[in-house]
Design a protein around this nucleic acid. Structure first.
Length: 778
DNA sequence: TTAGGATTTG
């Protein structure tokens, strides 16, 4: 009998097989080798529907996984004829599958599916034999089973569902409605799943307890459902909660930790299932496009529907059918926003905070069925509001400029609703750190506004200021060393020979450049050259050039990284390849992951830097990946682009990164990365010319500052609008525009003079050092 | 029971 079912204990399998057969390792399966007396054993992780070939032969494909820990641990098995038909009836995922008398041929799909380079061909005609060790298909009543006797669950692929059965499923969330209060007694959530069979299933889930419904936060999340009842409705299969329904939800991001969000306190989750989640993630990454209509307040336009991740600052009853939520996400809506008039006594929330954030919060008016849920929300909590509608209000008279309104209409179409996100949600963590940064800057903004107002009040007295009072005025800058040195007036400094050091007290009459971005340069400490920071267009130009070269499939998924290829819908199907660097053979949490990207645009790379620790743009050459031209950043981390000096760098093999990945806890420090890649890193620096006056003379001093003077890292300012505001405020304090010299603050500085020989001419230059802007200024 | 995906009209 070519197909035999072995109902035996796994450990004693060998004794049941013909004695002449020897087990073959996955890595030894190659075309051209003799596998006559060998058998291959693996676990069925995927089976495709039984189909017929053009000539009417039955065809059945499965994927077997080896239990070794090698990089490629799965292989496709293709069955033909009667064997295909028999196996399709018997096989379930999780079964142990043994095959002998197989043919080994090159797998045409290896590049796409990342499985073994060969596949196995099996048929009765070619003398193959198959042994299947089936899984017990028990459906337990309780999840609370001790691990030692944990039952094996059988998961049904979505293309194999039958009316009237109760099944366990895995799937990727393609669409969902966050739980809402139904017209009956329960909460309801509608979830559409898809799996590798590309078949969709819409499930309607009910429960009186909100926590018992799946904790899905975005499309692309992966769910495991236990005990779903399958019914046919309108000619399609439909899932519905049955007694004992339980779910686990996982982040769908490749490389993210596989941590279940459970709907019950006790649940089983074993290593094998972790693999299932990872497989689904990889499949989804290359087969599904699940990007939702997410937007920040700064991105909104009139007439759009979008999902907003935000914090609730205030809430208020408006009338019987609508309720107001005041939310913010730290960004500013580019349009004037609608403020819903409410009675002061109805408004709930921290008054100080509401006032403080009044220019950043928006009013979202929620209607009908969402009102009850909205009322129960706690201010301060983090929300995702799905399918908010922005509407441009028509200006009723010309005096009132049109504004934008935010509505969450009644109903649940398109997943419209409100989800409460937990504090440990990665998007919430990202939002929280962003909001902290905004709050800080914003409060400083307010303080400096009030001090400016005070300053104006005092202005009338400054003309009467005595020289003594002037000396007693606090300086807007402070010294970080050499406190015992006494002051020298500028006239003396100018009349002395260089090099020397001085402590001076002066006012900043003017500074250059006036435009902030012009003051940030890149400096090589080795050859001491300064260069401009490349702009986005220049980088995109280099990236485009590289995207034109097809990635080399030979360089995908090597021992120290795992690769995933995307094909974009635009740009004639441009391919983006991402290589996730592994740590001890394992993918890391995204926030710890270094990845290399081929073929991405700057925008796509930026997006990845928000989620992953480091991004290195690379291109394929014949036998290795390599860095791009050094006019492009060699590394992006957080919102900083790191550049290397073209003159002083000698790029080394990209493989050297694997030595950093092998460290116990790779820190992915930019300096370390630069070092192993042979890059001499450039540092961001503020370069400015200050014209200083003190009544005795005028002196131009250069400021060359990485971070110390402004207490703002030069590396971050170009991509951080809050730091830019802070810098602007600082400069406005040191040298307020439009003020008389008398009204300028004093600066205490250290300067050093030095000689510069230019041909026959000698010139004395001055540089500020060991000085920092006073704390009350920044 | 409820909803059964497929934007409100405030």
């Amino acid at each position: 009998m070519p197909v035999q079912v072995l109902k035996i204990i796994k450990g004693k399998l060998e004794t049941q097989l013909p004695s002449h057969l020897q087990r073959e390792d996955l890595k030894h399966l190659q075309t051209g080798l003799d596998h006559t007396n060998k058998y291959f054993q693996g676990i069925v992780i995927l089976s495709y529907p039984l189909t017929k070939l053009g000539d009417g032969t039955d065809f059945f494909k499965i994927v077997l996984q080896d239990d070794t820990c090698s990089r490629i641990n799965s292989i496709n098995v293709l069955m033909y004829g009667k064997m295909a038909e028999d196996c399709a009836k018997l096989i379930r995922n999780g079964d142990t599958f043994i095959v002998a008398g197989f043919k080994v041929a090159e797998s045409p799909t290896a590049r796409e599916d990342g499985r073994h380079a060969c596949h196995l061909q099996v048929s009765e005609e070619s003398g193959s034999a198959i042994f299947i060790c089936t899984q017990p298909s028990i459906t337990p009543f309780s999840e609370a089973t001790s691990p030692s006797v944990a039952p094996k669950y059988v998961y049904t692929p979505l293309n194999c569902l039958k009316d009237g059965t109760v099944v366990n499923l895995y799937g990727i969330v393609k669409f969902f409605k966050p739980p809402y209060i139904s017209k009956g007694t329960d909460y309801c959530s509608v979830v559409t799943l898809v799996d590798q069979s590309n078949v969709k299933l819409t499930c309607t889930l009910f429960n009186g307890n909100l926590d018992s419904l799946p904790k899905i936060y975005k499309n692309g999340d992966i769910v495991r459902f236990h005990r779903v009842k399958i019914r046919e409705y309108n000619g399609q299969m439909q899932g519905i909660t049955s007694a004992g329904f339980a779910s686990l939800t996982f982040d769908g991001t490749v490389g993210a930790p596989v941590v279940p969000r459970a709907s019950s306190k006790v649940y089983t989750f074993v290593d094998e299932e972790q693999k299932t989640v990872e497989e689904l993630r990889i499949w989804a990454a290359s087969n599904l496009s699940v990007s939702g209509p997410e937007a920040k307040l700064s991105d909104v336009k009139p007439m759009m529907f979008f999902d907003l991740t935000c914090q609730l600052v205030g809430k208020a009853k408006v009338d019987g059918s609508s309720f107001l939520l005041k939310v913010w996400d730290g960004t500013k809506c580019p349009y004037p926003t609608w403020k819903v008039p409410v009675e002061a006594k109805e408004l709930e929330g921290d008054r100080v905070l509401l006032h403080h954030l009044r220019n950043l919060t928006v009013d979202v008016l929620v209607y009908d069925n969402h009102v009850q849920l909205a009322k129960s929300l706690k201010t301060g909590s983090f929300l995702r509001i799905y399918s908010i509608h922005t509407k441009q209000a028509s200006a009723k008279n010309e005096d009132i400029s049109s504004h934008i309104e935010f509505h969450l209409h009644g109903g649940t179409c398109y997943g419209r609703g409100i989800g409460i996100l937990p504090e440990n949600n990665p998007d919430v963590e990202e939002l929280k750190s962003f909001l902290e940064c905004v709050e800080l800057t914003d409060s400083q903004n307010m303080e400096s506004v009030s001090s400016l107002e005070l300053g104006d009040t005092f202005d009338s007295y400054t003309d009467l200021e005595s020289p003594l009072q002037r000396c007693q005025q606090l300086s807007a800058t402070v010294l970080t060393d050499h406190q015992d040195m006494s002051n020298t007036v500028l006239k003396t400094v100018l009349n002395s020979s260089a090099p020397q050091q001085y402590r001076i007290r002066a006012k900043l009459r003017s500074f250059k450049p006036q435009k902030l971005y012009q003051s940030v340069k890149l400096h090589c400490s080795k050859c001491n050259t300064l260069q401009e920071v490349p702009n986005g267009d220049a980088i995109d130009f280099i990236l485009q050039g590289c995207a034109a070269t097809a990635p080399n499939p030979e360089l995908q998924s090597m021992s120290w990284y795992e690769s995933v290829v995307w094909t974009t819908e635009e740009d004639q199907g441009r391919k983006i390849t991402i290589h996730f660097v592994k740590h001890y053979e394992m993918l890391q949490r995204p926030e710890n992951t270094l990845l290399m990207i081929e073929g991405g645009t700057l925008k796509e790379i930026w997006k990845l830097t928000r989620r992953f620790k480091c991004v290195i743009p690379v291109k394929s050459k014949e036998d290795d990946l390599e860095l791009l031209d050094l006019s492009a950043p060699f590394l992006l981390q957080g919102n900083i682009k790191y550049y290397g000096c073209k003159k002083c760098s000698t790029p080394k093999s990209i493989k050297n990164l694997s030595s950093l990945a092998e460290k116990r806890e790779p820190s992915w420090e930019p300096t370390e990365i630069a070092q192993v890649l042979g890059i001499e890193p450039l540092q961001y620096v503020f370069v400015m010319k200050f014209t200083l006056v003190d009544g005795t003379g005028v002196l131009n001093a250069y400021l060359f500052d990485y971070e110390k003077f402004f207490q703002i890292p030069a590396s971050e300012i170009l991509t951080n609008s809050f730091l830019q505001q802070k810098m602007e405020m600082t400069m406005n304090t040191l040298s307020p525009p439009g003020r008389k010299l008398d009204d300028l603050p004093w600066l205490e500085c250290f300067i050093k003079s030095y000689n510069v020989a230019d041909g026959m001419k000698h010139q004395v230059y001055y540089q500020i050092f060991d000085t920092t802007v006073a704390e009350d200024v920044v």
